[in-house]
Structure formats: C-alpha cells, structure tokens
C-alpha cells in the first residue's frame, strides 16, 4: 500500500481524508486506484495532476515506480511562464 497525501481541497472528494492509501506500484496505477476508490477525485485527475515522489515533482510519467516507503504527494498540474 502507498500512502498518498492529497491537497486540502481534495479532502471533500476523499471522504474527508488528507492521507489515503491505495495499492499501486506506478504513477498510472496510483491515479487509477485513486479514481476507483474515490470517484470524486476523477474530475481533478482528468484536468491534470502532478505527483511529488520523495520530493521530486513529476508532471506525467505513468510508469514512474513508487515504493511502499515513498513519500507521495498529489499536486495540481504544474504550469509556468
């Protein structure tokens, strides 16, 4: 199981939880499991999210591997200028 930290405004779509646990080995699996477990997250996942894995931010990269001890933080999709 991977513990995923959600940003605050996603709590309402995740049964009021800030930290949720899903079974996932990759970024793609994590997004899929989040959507299945918490359908209220699907609109945000569809709009785009970034993922911080042990402090490194990934914007895409489905197959990025996630270890059970990894720090995983879901973030809005990063944009810049």
């Amino acid at each position: 199981m991977v513990k995923v930290r959600l940003w605050g405004s996603l709590r309402q779509a995740a049964d009021g939880l800030t930290d949720v646990e899903v079974e996932a080995r990759t970024f793609k699996e994590l997004l899929d499991r989040l959507g299945e477990s918490y359908p209220g997250l699907k609109p945000q996942i569809a709009r785009g999210v970034s993922l911080s894995l042990d402090g490194v931010i990934y914007r895409e990269a489905w197959f990025t591997e996630i270890g059970p001890e990894s720090e995983v933080v879901l973030m809005p999709y990063m944009t810049g200028g």
Partner: peptide
C-alpha cells in the same frame, strides 16, 4: 515538509 506538501530534497 514544504507548505505545499512534499518534503524538500
């Protein structure tokens, strides 16, 4: 632990 979530490297 950053204010936006991740722990800084």
């Amino acid at each position: 632990k950053s204010s936006y979530g991740p722990t800084f490297p």
